[in-house]
């Protein structure tokens, strides 16, 4: 026999479930919308980072570039690709903008990006890449260029270095 108390309790439980569903649905919709809006935000950060790098490249004083093994290798590969057949050089590859020295003399900890270890960080530094915003501004052509020198083909995209850099930057750049 169902008592009146039980009916009231059932009604309350169903009402609670309905309200919880409402809140959950509203929150889920908000989250989905925020996620959909993310690329536009990324593009803004990317543009900002690119502008920043261009400005720094112009402003930075000329300093002697360190000649490490990775830099020499990069130079050698560049000459190899450029000299025998300039027309055959892949037009999709482009060297990313480099800095002669870290801004303020203090490079970012690139190892915060999952997939970048001590060796890769050193190689990136040798190529004039010291900051997360430089990585965040990489284009596909620049990633192609870098993958021929410091990483296995497809690794930068697979490990989402650029996206990770953007995320790490958003934790520090005020919106």
């Amino acid at each position: 026999m169902i008592t009146l108390d039980h009916v009231v309790e059932i009604a309350l439980l169903v009402l609670f479930a309905y309200l919880a569903g409402c809140v959950l649905g509203y929150s889920a919709h908000l989250a989905v919308r925020a996620f959909a809006a993310r690329p536009r935000f990324e593009a803004r950060i990317r543009a900002q980072a690119a502008a920043n790098i261009q400005k720094e490249s112009v402003d930075a004083p000329e300093a002697p570039a360190p000649r490490s093994a990775a830099r020499r290798l990069a130079g050698a590969v560049e000459r190899e690709v450029a000299e025998p057949a300039p027309a055959a050089a892949a037009p999709t590859q482009q060297r990313p903008p480099e800095l002669p020295a870290p801004r303020g003399g203090k490079p970012d900890d690139l190892k915060k990006i999952k997939g970048i270890g001590q060796k890769t960080e050193s190689a990136l530094n040798d190529l004039g890449i010291y900051h997360l915003d430089q990585i965040a501004a990489w284009t596909p052509a620049q990633i192609d260029w870098l993958e021929g020198r410091i990483a296995v083909k497809g690794r930068i995209g697979r490990e989402q270095w650029v996206e990770q850099a953007i995320l790490l930057m958003t934790a520090t750049v005020p919106v």
């Binding site: 569903g21 409402c22 959950l24 649905g25 889920a28």
Partner: peptide, 14 residues
């Protein structure tokens, strides 16, 4: 079922 209905309502209320 009530939760599901609430979910749909909450989703479309935005």
């Amino acid at each position: 079922v009530a939760g599901l209905v609430g979910l749909v309502t909450g989703w479309f209320s935005l």
